[in-house]
């Protein structure tokens, strides 16, 4: 099993006719994801890689019974694309776009939450259930099916960890990139809850970074979890007041430091690795290997 995406995923790609949208559609299809439709306003009736393109998400959902949408729409229009997907009735929206204004995301996140629609991202690499479905821009070839669930605010760091795990013969159930923005649809604690309920996830890796207090909040929940969690926090040497690449990676007013997160996690009994290799060591330990 896995969480969020699997063989039943029927995917719409919003922005399928763009360069990024088209390239990653081909990658997702090659991985075996069931891409049922594309949406680009004004391009309805065309086909991309054999996938029918519609003008609106509602039309695409009606015609194909899609349940998930992934968004490759430029930042000025991306929040609206999320809202359109939410209104059209999909269950899961994955927003890859980076650089969406915070104000747009406040409105959007509050709305999708009220609608009961799950949003992953924005500014994220998406997610993958190893061997089942890829909904995102993650490099499918490094993932192998197995018992480790992974949730992360960073894309490339996820790949590093997965690469290390896979090279040691430790596979993954689902890997979720929740995104590097300050306002995101799904936070650590949401994904931890899903992993806790997934019988096939035996250990969870949580990769956090400076900024905000999602990791501290997650630490509180982990105290109740039966599934063991291993963590890693990046940005231990980041200076305060500077945005480290991700819009959300900033220590402000003395809050959001790596130290505060490490302390909260350790207090919850979570082993916090100091290096990438140590993450894999601690996972192997937790798996009893």
């Amino acid at each position: 099993m896995s969480i969020l995406v699997d063989g039943n995923t029927r995917l719409i790609v919003q922005g399928i006719t763009g360069r990024e949208g088209q390239f990653h559609t081909s990658q997702m299809m090659a991985y075996g994801t069931n891409v049922v439709a594309g949406v680009t306003p004004g391009k309805g009736g065309q086909e991309v890689l054999g996938v029918p393109v519609f003008d609106t998400v509602r039309e695409a959902v009606r015609a194909t019974d899609a349940n998930t949408s992934i968004i490759f729409v430029p930042a000025p229009f991306a929040a609206e694309a999320v809202l359109e997907a939410a209104e059209a009735g999909v269950d899961l929206i994955v927003c890859i776009t980076e650089g969406i204004p915070v104000q747009d995301m406040i409105e959007t996140v509050q709305y999708v939450r009220r609608q009961g629609v799950r949003l992953i991202g924005p500014n994220c690499p998406g997610l993958i259930s190893a061997g089942q479905a890829l909904v995102g821009i993650l490099p499918g070839r490094i993932f192998t099916p197995g018992p480790v669930g992974l949730v992360s605010r960073s894309g490339t760091l996820t790949y590093e960890v997965v690469n290390e795990l896979s090279s040691r013969g430790i596979g993954q159930s689902t890997c979720v990139g929740i995104g590097g923005d300050p306002i995101i649809g799904t936070r650590f604690v949401d994904v931890l809850r899903m992993f806790e309920a997934d019988p096939d996830t035996e250990v969870v890796v949580m990769i956090g970074e400076i900024g905000g207090s999602d990791e501290e909040e997650a630490a509180e929940y982990i105290k109740e979890m039966r599934t063991p969690v291993v963590s890693f926090i990046s940005g231990r040497t980041a200076p305060p007041g500077k945005r480290m690449g991700h819009a959300g990676a900033i220590i402000s007013g003395g809050r959001g430091t790596a130290q505060s997160k490490v302390e909260a996690l350790e207090a919850a009994g979570v082993p916090v690795a100091a290096t990438i290799t140590e993450i894999a060591d601690k996972v192997a330990e937790a798996l009893g290997r």
Partner: peptide, 27 residues
């Protein structure tokens, strides 16, 4: 120089662990 904010931040941390200091963050 690295690709991805998390990867670069971790690189800065590793440099400090190795007894050095980074001159910059560049993603």
């Amino acid at each position: 120089i690295g690709n991805g904010a998390g990867l670069v931040m971790t690189t800065l941390d590793m440099i400090q662990r190795s007894g050095g200091k980074a001159a910059n963050f560049l993603d």
